[in-house]
């Protein structure tokens, strides 16, 4: 698995990927600097500060990483590299699993980026209070939600194989869901359980589960949703003419 992760990361690390990730990281830091007033006034890295940092960092998980994944995977189809691998003996199932290993590797990299952002904030402002338990919880959530969004992006890229279509579907769904939540959350409270919104609100600590039983509802929504998207896309990818 480490060998495959190394191969996939070698292919993934391109100049535009680094630019996109750095751009989103800078945005995260700037937004945190502007919004986390309590931290920059009193040095308290508490729930409020983590909410601000996580709200800014969520764009890395929902936009930066999926965007770079879609561009990379679709590029492999555009220049025929993926087909070269598949026609030279790599099974389609193995090709899919390589991409999900990439998603796993990027989830760990996302966690390191989150660590980097928090470390940077702590370096520029001395903390008088730091909530370690929220920090550890956020690190774990970074890995889980990065996997969630990356897996969906990979599935769409495998199914559609054209970056314009894959990004259109991904962002159209994201925008439609956000619109529905904003428009109908007052009249239909269940709408906040739509998968992307639920994942984002948990990561932003707006609906953070406290006890073990609180994880049950998000898990029963997010895991089947992600599994269904992955299964459908990989199923049709295995049957498609390439």
């Amino acid at each position: 698995m480490i060998r495959i992760a190394t191969i996939e990361l070698t292919k993934y690390a391109r100049t535009f990927v680094v630019f996109i990730v750095i751009y989103f990281l800078v945005l995260t830091i700037l937004e945190s600097r502007l919004e986390a007033k309590a931290f920059f006034t009193y040095g308290t890295f508490d729930l409020h500060t983590f909410t601000v940092v996580n709200s800014a960092f969520i764009t890395v998980l929902t936009s930066a990483i999926p965007l770079t994944i879609v561009l990379n995977v679709c590029n492999e189809f555009k220049n025929g590299y993926a087909l070269k691998l598949i026609s030279n003996g790599l099974s389609r199932a193995a090709y899919c699993s390589f991409k999900f290993i990439l998603a796993g590797s990027l989830a760990i990299i996302s966690m390191l980026l989150y660590l980097l952002v928090v470390s940077f904030l702590l370096a520029v402002q001395k903390a008088t209070y730091f909530d370690t338990s929220i920090f550890i919880g956020s690190l774990i959530r970074t890995v889980l939600f990065s996997m969630f969004f990356s897996s969906i992006a990979i599935s769409l890229a495998l199914l559609l194989r054209t970056w314009q279509y894959a990004l259109l579907v991904y962002y159209a769904y994201l925008i439609i869901e956000t619109f529905l939540v904003l428009r109908f959350q007052e009249t239909a409270p269940w709408i906040k359980y739509l998968p992307f919104n639920l994942a984002v609100s948990i990561f932003q600590l707006q609906a953070a589960p406290q006890r073990l039983s609180d994880y049950l509802l998000p898990a029963t929504i997010l895991i089947p949703f992600c599994s269904a998207v992955v299964w459908c896309c990989t199923h049709f990818f295995r049957k498609a003419d390439l």
Binding site: R3, I4, I7, T10, K11, R14, T15, E76, N79, G80, Y81, L83, K84, L85, S87, N88, G89, L90, F98
Partner: peptide, 27 residues
């Protein structure tokens, strides 16, 4: 099975030798 098709290329951003290592390792 080994194949060559006109519309299949290696990755442009990697060097020849790196491309070959990555490709052979993948398959």
């Amino acid at each position: 099975i080994a194949t060559i098709f006109e519309d299949q290329r290696f990755l442009g951003h990697l060097s020849g030798i790196k491309n070959m290592r990555v490709f052979l390792n993948s398959i």
